[in-house]
Amino acid sequence: MRQAETVTFGGAGSDRHSGLRADPARVAALLADPAARVLPLWRGKPLVAGPARDHLGWLQPGCEALDLADPPVLLGLSPEGPRFAADLSRWQPAETDAAALAAFFDPSEQYHPALPTDHLFAELRGVMTRLSPAEAEYAATARAILGWHRTHGFCAACGAPTELTMAGWQRRCPSCGAHHFPRTDPVVIMLVTRGNSVLLGRSPGWPERMYSLLAGFMEPGETIEAAVRREVREETGVQVGAVSYLASQPWPFPASLMIGCRGIALSEALALDPVEIEDALWLPREELATVFADAHPAIAAPRRGAIAHFLLRNWLADRLD
């Protein structure tokens, strides 16, 4: 698919300079560079700046707000200088909305008193399409790697506390010597078509009217093609024949790689798994056009920036080649 790398979080090609991670002295020198900047995240929310929330709030390493429990993670080297990410989650805002923080999409924003008033922590899914491709990639990487650190503080082999190493790209157990590496979970997401119609579904708890493509985690010992056929069959009863790859997207909510595929349906009848799927339907291309025009009375499109939105829009425009 020629448009594949224009998906949100993909195609910027930032230089991670992974070869520097094993050199603590070099990493320390990069952090001391006057051009170095750190992107703080609070509970997975990146710091964004400006009235439009359209760029990241990079801070100098010595900024008063950066009261960190762990060293920053090296994201790479940009043309402007070294770039790092840091978890600021132990900071407690003066006020928080517990209901908003637990919602499917958290619209709340948090202000740190040591920062300019136009710098706020915001849900990445709400600002991802406003960021430049390079900044979107940095934000996605930072959210995924810092989220992994928050949930992997103990050794899976012996249970002892682990420590951050390799500029944040590894955790080491000082007790048994085990090394632990960041995890990415592969997820297949399927543009399943039958003639001029596409298969859409919605899960329980989703925002009202929102429908999307079917998706599911791959299982051990499974090919991409087998995962596509299994997930569609389990969730809707539809049999899928030919499967082809379209595009992929890092999706750091919390740490997935969305593998976008096209599947050609061999059957049409629906038999839903009520645990996974609240509703599913076949939608003709002409009706999908009204969904993307926000004119459909019962169906809303997936969120802009998500690969489901990207694949559906390209199918609608006949740009899957």
Rank of each mutant, 00 (worst) to 15 (best):
V232S: 01
P274Q: 06
H152R: 09
L124C: 03
Q3C: 12
A94T: 09
W206C: 06
P252A: 10
L316V: 02
L120S: 04
S203F: 12
L281K: 12
D67I: 12
L31S: 04
L41D: 10
L20M: 13
R2S: 13
T290M: 14
W42H: 14
P254L: 10
R53D: 15
A306W: 14
P284H: 05
V127H: 09
D318L: 13
A227W: 08
D118C: 03
L115C: 00
P284K: 02
E268M: 07
Y211I: 07
G76Y: 06
R130Y: 05
G10R: 15
R262P: 04
I264W: 05
R209I: 01
E208K: 11
A139Q: 00
A306V: 10
T290C: 06
P34K: 01
P207M: 02
E135Y: 01
T290G: 05
E163G: 14
D118H: 05
P79R: 03
R53I: 05
K45G: 11
L39P: 05
M218P: 07
L120C: 04
R53M: 15
E222F: 00
R171T: 15
P24W: 04
D70G: 06
S132M: 05
R171K: 13
E64T: 11
H296K: 06
L146W: 10
R303M: 13
D185K: 09
T165I: 15
T184V: 15
V243T: 06
T290R: 15
G81Y: 07
W148I: 11
E286I: 09
H180D: 09
S89W: 13
D33R: 01
R313N: 11
R230N: 10
A140N: 01
L288E: 07
E219W: 07
Q110K: 08
A301V: 07
C173K: 04
R313A: 11
A142R: 08
R230A: 04
L30T: 08
D294Y: 07
R2K: 14
